[in-house]
């Protein structure tokens, strides 16, 4: 099975305290630690496991800048066979549809049976996979937490729905799936693995290679635009307990007693 997995380089929210920049036009990017989007990493692991079972090839693709190469390499160290970087100044400011259009053009340059994305990335939009599928006229399933290959024409997939229940579907290939966390246990990537792929050539394609007009992608083609980042005025919020740890614990114990938290 030829599998394409779309991956994105994002600030790692588990490693960073995100704050809005003083100008309000971005978050503070100074000391951010970046990594591959958590959901995408599960998607790559799933692709590798499918290929381990039925054979084939895994390609990881990112829309991004030069620094996205580092996450492509990381996913190749995990076991993806090929990488592809889609990079062009014209892509800057793309909305979800713009990003899906870029990926669609890249899909057209290859031949894939299965395309995976993460269920969502740092903006929580959960949109690119579904858009890409519709553009390609492929069937789509989101929030997938189980993939079983029936034959070379169909898959059985589980979707995670409310309450942790699982919706089982049969889906025809080629198709697009967005992968939910927890579907597998992504393998660890060591320094040695990274070193092994350090010098592998990663092809780069821009707007003209992909046959994309500048007005269909990037800020020019975007109907959805971010105006600013801000910290919302909230209600009261939590009453913060202050003092030494001992004092805080004393106050907390009193509160727990009062609220029925200690029996």
């Amino acid at each position: 099975m030829e599998i394409l997995v779309c991956v994105k380089r994002v600030p790692d929210t588990a490693e960073n305290e995100i704050s809005v920049s003083s100008a309000g036009n971005d978050i503070e990017r100074g000391d951010l630690v970046y990594s591959v989007n958590e959901w995408d990493n599960y998607a790559v692991e799933e692709a590798i496991q499918i290929v381990d079972r039925v054979g084939g090839n895994v390609t990881v693709v990112a829309v991004g800048d030069d620094e996205s190469e580092e996450i492509l390499r990381r996913e190749m160290a995990m076991g993806a066979n090929d990488g592809l970087l889609l990079k062009d100044g014209a892509f800057d400011g793309s909305d979800g549809k713009g990003t899906a259009s870029i990926l669609k053009a890249a899909v057209g340059k290859g031949k894939y049976d299965l395309i995976l994305t993460g269920a969502q990335a740092e903006a929580g939009a959960a949109q690119v996979g579904g858009m890409l599928a519709a553009m390609l006229d492929y069937p789509y399933a989101s929030l997938v937490n189980k993939v079983e290959v029936i034959d070379d024409k169909k898959l059985k997939v589980g979707r995670e729905i409310e309450g942790g229940n699982q919706e089982i579907n049969e889906i025809e290939l080629p198709c697009v799936l967005s992968i939910q966390t927890g579907i597998n246990e992504p393998r660890y990537v060591g320094i040695r693995g990274i070193r092994k792929v350090a010098s592998v050539e990663i092809p780069v394609m821009g707007a003209s290679d992909l046959g994309l007009g500048a007005d269909s992608v990037g800020a020019a083609g975007a109907k959805v635009k971010r105006v600013d980042y801000f910290v919302p005025e909230m209600g009261a919020g939590a009453e913060m307990l202050e003092g030494s740890t001992e004092e805080i614990i004393d106050k907390l114990v009193e509160l727990l007693k009062a609220k029925g938290g200690l029996k």
């Binding site: 979800g96 549809k97 899906a100 269920a119 929580g124 939009a125 959960a126 949109q127 690119v128 996979g129 579904g130 858009m131 599928a133 519709a134 553009m135 789509y140 399933a141 989101s142 929030l143 979707r159 995670e160 729905i161 409310e162 109907k223 959805v224």
Partner: peptide, 23 residues
């Protein structure tokens, strides 16, 4: 924006040639 909306919305916006904004 629940597991059904996430499944339906993005593709629907493409087929209707509409803008999409989620959550």
């Amino acid at each position: 924006h629940d597991t059904f909306g996430i499944d339906l919305g993005p593709g629907l916006s493409i087929k209707m040639n509409s803008a999409y904004v989620s959550d």
